[in-house]
Simulated scan of single mutants.
Amino acid sequence: MNAYLGRAPVALAVTALAVTLTACGGSDGSDGSGDKGDSGAAVRIGLLLPENETARYEKFDKPLMEKKVALLTLGKGKVLYANAGGDAARQSAQADAMIKDKVDVLVIDAVDSKAIAGAVTKAKDAGIAVVAYDRLAEGPIDAYTSFDNEDVGRVQGKALLDALGDKARTGKIVMMNGAVTDPNAASFKSGARSVLDGKVNVGKEYDTVEWKPENATANMAAALSALGKDKVVGVYSANDGMAGGIIAALKAAGVSPLPPVTGQDAELAGVRRIVAGEQFMTVYKPYAREAEAAAELAVLLAQGEKIDGIINQVVSSPTTKRVPAVLIPGVPVTREDIRTTVILDGVYTPEEICNDAIKAACQEIGLK
């Protein structure tokens, strides 16, 4: 079954945003006067991304959002960008600087959802709207756009369960979750657990500090030492970066054949490992949909438009109830799905994926 089915509610929500912007004059060719109520206004969007360990932020999120803001504002909109490099204090300082610079809207992918709450409150006090992006920040946020993170976890858990087959009951799995400072990590874990609990034996489970691959490598080495390398039949990895670290530890321990390892983000290295048969699957998240939805929300808020009447989804954080939200489903990717997902969407070309090391494997699955 094509995993792209089921995207309709998201498409409708994003289309509603686009229609609203068109009605305001942003997509019909009008030249705009530059006032805040005009889609051609010179709006300034502050974009704060959390880290650069994960390839997606610099390669996809930032340029996609810049392109969409430019389109919606007839080239008059500007995205001011900062990356926190995984440092929550640095991100708060970056937010403070943008508030002082009087941006119209902040789009924040929080390093630490709790630590950013103070900056969100400062923005609100300064009359600056805040869109929580990819991770649900605490504080008085105005909107949220992300992927359906519990569903991502369910997709990962189901894929692992399917890959294990009869081995699900005969061995142990290791769960390599993300950082506790990231609320998405808890959602991924919850979704995966809803599928796996009662059907597998979890031998070891880790919340991986800062999502770092090297920390996942150390955790996996410790798990193999504690459980025995012959007892581990599968690994739940919350993302591709950690999957790479996990597979490095498995190889270093001489585990062969490699057990199924999950992932997320469809990073190029992860896709290559899937082609090579080292990583079982990843979850492709259509970043264009997420970034475009965030850009549309930001431009609407910058123009002083109300958004709660055009979005039929809401979420709640510990500090803000019923936040208008656009939640986008993820898509499972195994060897069989690469052509109909990341290649079809133009994320990668076969030439980008199929380096010399995996040319034979690419030919085997029809990518070259």
Rank of each mutant, 00 (worst) to 15 (best):
109 D>F: 07
97 A>C: 06
104 D>A: 01
99 I>K: 04
122 K>I: 01
99 I>C: 07
82 A>D: 10
94 Q>C: 01
80 L>N: 11
73 T>D: 05
92 S>W: 09
87 D>Y: 13
70 A>Q: 07
120 V>M: 05
102 K>M: 00
99 I>H: 10
110 A>I: 06
97 A>T: 11
85 G>T: 09
76 K>E: 09
112 D>I: 02
93 A>W: 02
85 G>E: 03
85 G>W: 03
115 A>R: 12
92 S>P: 12
69 V>I: 06
71 L>T: 15
81 Y>A: 13
93 A>S: 14
111 V>W: 07
68 K>A: 15
104 D>E: 03
94 Q>F: 01
69 V>A: 00
117 A>C: 13
70 A>H: 09
112 D>M: 03
78 K>E: 09
122 K>A: 10
74 L>T: 13
86 G>I: 04
107 V>A: 07
105 V>T: 03
78 K>P: 01
81 Y>G: 12
96 D>E: 15
68 K>Q: 15
69 V>H: 02
78 K>Y: 09
72 L>C: 11
116 I>W: 04
68 K>S: 14
96 D>K: 12
98 M>N: 12
82 A>W: 13
118 G>M: 12
80 L>K: 11
78 K>W: 09
117 A>S: 15
88 A>K: 12
74 L>D: 15
83 N>Q: 05
121 T>R: 14
121 T>Q: 15
111 V>G: 03
96 D>Q: 15
119 A>Q: 08
66 E>Q: 12
79 V>M: 08
102 K>R: 08
82 A>M: 13
87 D>K: 11
92 S>T: 10
97 A>G: 10
65 M>I: 12
110 A>Q: 06
119 A>R: 14
112 D>W: 10
117 A>V: 14
89 A>M: 08
64 L>R: 01
120 V>S: 05
110 A>D: 03
122 K>D: 08
114 K>G: 08
94 Q>E: 08
85 G>N: 09
81 Y>N: 14
81 Y>R: 11
107 V>W: 10
72 L>W: 15
103 V>G: 04
71 L>V: 14
121 T>M: 10
106 L>V: 02
68 K>L: 11
79 V>H: 03
117 A>M: 13
88 A>E: 07
84 A>W: 01
90 R>C: 05
109 D>Y: 09
85 G>D: 05
93 A>H: 08
107 V>S: 02
118 G>F: 12
74 L>S: 14
83 N>F: 14
79 V>L: 08
65 M>E: 13
71 L>R: 15
95 A>T: 10
85 G>F: 05
72 L>I: 09
96 D>M: 08
102 K>Q: 04
106 L>Y: 01
73 T>M: 06
93 A>R: 12
108 I>E: 02
72 L>A: 14
64 L>A: 02
73 T>L: 04
84 A>K: 06
89 A>H: 02
81 Y>E: 11
82 A>T: 10
75 G>L: 00
69 V>W: 03
67 K>N: 09
72 L>P: 06
117 A>F: 09
